[in-house]
Amino acid sequence: MSSPRSWRHYPQRYRYEAAVCTKCGKVHFPPRLICDACKGREFTTKTMARTGKILTHTIVRVGPSNFADQSPFAVAVVEMDDGPRITCQVADWNQGQLTIGQKVRLEFRKIYDEGASGIINYGYKAVPI
């Protein structure tokens, strides 16, 4: 991902800013232009609570080139306490913690860097609590 594209995602990746449909109240993360529940087009911004639970998970053993040094790594679909479901890496898990229903909190982590001299991209990963 290029630096400008990463920069455009700061509100979501850094601050977990979701869009709440003003018509039906559905919380979208990342934000959408049109609500998929009621087709509403007006939204307010809400900072999501950082906690949720693992719905499903897997281990990626052969990661893409930017993630090769991190392999094998865990990826999970996490249902946030505010409703949205997100896909993200799971960090710092102990034996027995990578399970369906495990409570997690989003932590600010390095996602990958663009080589030794490139920009460092930050975002969220789920950490078991």
Binding site: D69, Q70, A91, D92, E107, F108, R109, K110, I111, I120, Y122, K125
Partner: peptide, 16 residues
């Protein structure tokens, strides 16, 4: 620190 932790990530969590 884990490979995905650095001064920035630790500082952000402490600041929160």
């Amino acid at each position: 620190p884990a490979p995905d932790q650095d001064v920035i990530t630790l500082a952000v969590e402490a600041a929160r």
